[in-house]
C-alpha cells in the first residue's frame, strides 16, 4: 500500500450507482406535488410573456415563429440549469452539510458509485424539468409534432454534459458562495449568448467561434430542429461535443470527489 492515494485511476462504478439514483428519485417524489405548479407555471409565464409579447414585434427568427424559436432554446437551457444546480447545490449539500455520502460510504457502495449515481440523477432531473416545458410549448402550438419526443434523450444528454462540470465545482467548493462564480462567469453568459433568444449568427465572428466551444450552443443546435420537426444539421458534431464534455466532466468530478471524500 503506497503513500499516494489512487485518485487518478479510471472510475469503476457498479450497480450501487442506481441505488444512489433511486435515493434521489424517492426524495424528489416526496416533493413532487408541491413542485408541480412551479414546473408548469414558470414556462407558461416565460413562453406567454416573452414568446407572444416579443414575438409580436419580432415575427420569425431563423425560419421559425419566435415562440417556437424561444421555446426550443429554453428547453435546452432549462436542461442545462437543472443539471447544473443539482450537480452543484444538491451534491454539495449531500457531501458536506447532510453528510449523506459519509453514511453511504459505510455501506458496500463506493465513491465511484455515488458520483455515477448523482450524474445519472442530474440528467434525470434535466428530463423531469424539461418535460413540463415541452407540454406547455405544445399546448401553445410551439411544437411541430410528435417527433419532438426525440428531443427527450437529448435533454438527458444535456444533463450529463452539464452535471460533470457542476459536480466538479461541488468537489472544489469551500462553500455555497463559490457557485456564484461558475453561474455568473459561465452559465449566465452561455444562457445569453448561445442562441437561446436569438441566432448565434447575429454575433460577431470571433464571438461565434467562442460560443461554438461551449456546450449550450450545441445543445440548442440539436433541440431546436427536433422540436421544430426537422433533422438537425451537424448532429454528429453536436453529439460529440456534448458527449465530450460529459465524459471529461465525469472523470474530473470523480477524481476530485474521491480526493474530497477519501483522505
Amino acid at each position: 500500500m503506497g503513500a499516494s492515494t489512487p485518485i487518478a485511476i479510471l472510475p469503476r462504478p457498479r450497480g450501487g450507482a442506481f441505488i444512489v439514483w433511486l435515493r434521489n428519485l424517492l426524495v424528489w417524489r416526496k416533493l413532487m406535488v408541491a413542485g408541480l405548479f412551479l414546473a408548469f407555471g414558470e414556462p407558461f409565464v416565460y413562453l406567454l410573456g416573452l414568446g407572444y409579447g416579443l414575438g409580436r414585434f419580432i415575427g420569425e427568427v431563423g425560419g421559425l415563429p419566435y415562440l417556437a424559436f424561444l421555446a426550443s432554446g429554453l428547453l435546452a437551457s432549462s436542461a442545462m440549469n437543472a443539471a447544473s444546480f443539482e450537480g452543484m447545490y444538491s451534491v454539495f449539500t449531500r457531501m458536506t452539510h447532510q453528510q449523506t455520502y459519509d453514511a453511504i460510504l459505510a455501506t458496500p457502495l463506493s465513491v465511484d458509485d455515488i458520483v455515477a449515481g448523482e450524474m445519472l440523477w442530474c440528467a434525470t432531473k434535466s428530463v423531469i424539468v424539461t418535460l413540463p416545458i415541452l407540454v406547455v410549448a405544445a399546448l401553445l402550438g410551439a411544437v411541430a409534432g410528435p417527433a419532438a419526443v426525440l428531443a427527450v434523450p437529448v435533454f438527458f444528454l444535456i444533463g450529463l454534459c452539464f452535471a460533470g462540470p457542476a459536480m466538479l465545482m461541488a468537489a472544489l467548493a469551500p462553500s455555497y458562495d463559490f457557485f456564484n462564480y461558475y453561474v455568473t462567469l459561465l452559465i449566465t453568459p452561455m444562457f445569453i449568448f448561445s442562441g437561446v433568444f436569438y441566432p448565434v449568427t447575429t454575433l460577431p465572428g470571433f464571438a461565434q467561434a467562442l460560443v461554438q466551444l461551449l456546450p449550450l450552443s450545441h445543445a440548442v443546435g440539436l433541440v431546436r430542429p427536433l422540436v421544430a420537426g426537422s433533422a438537425p444539421a451537424d448532429a454528429g458534431l453536436h453529439l460529440v461535443v456534448l458527449l465530450g464534455y460529459a465524459a471529461a466532466g465525469y472523470l474530473a468530478s470523480t477524481w476530485f470527489i474521491r480526493r474530497r471524500l477519501v483522505r
Binding site: 424517492l26 426524495v27 449523506t100 453514511a103 453511504i104 459505510a106 455501506t107 458496500p108
Partner: peptide
C-alpha cells in the same frame, strides 16, 4: 463493509426521509 455496522461521530440520518424510511433506504445500500 457489507459485514460491518457504523455509528459515526455526527448523526447523519437522511433528513429527507422519515425514521423508518431511513432504515429501509439504508437496507437498499
Amino acid at each position: 463493509r457489507a459485514r460491518t455496522g457504523v455509528v459515526p461521530q455526527a448523526d447523519n440520518a437522511d433528513p429527507d426521509f422519515t425514521v423508518a424510511e431511513n432504515l429501509r433506504m439504508y437496507a437498499r445500500y
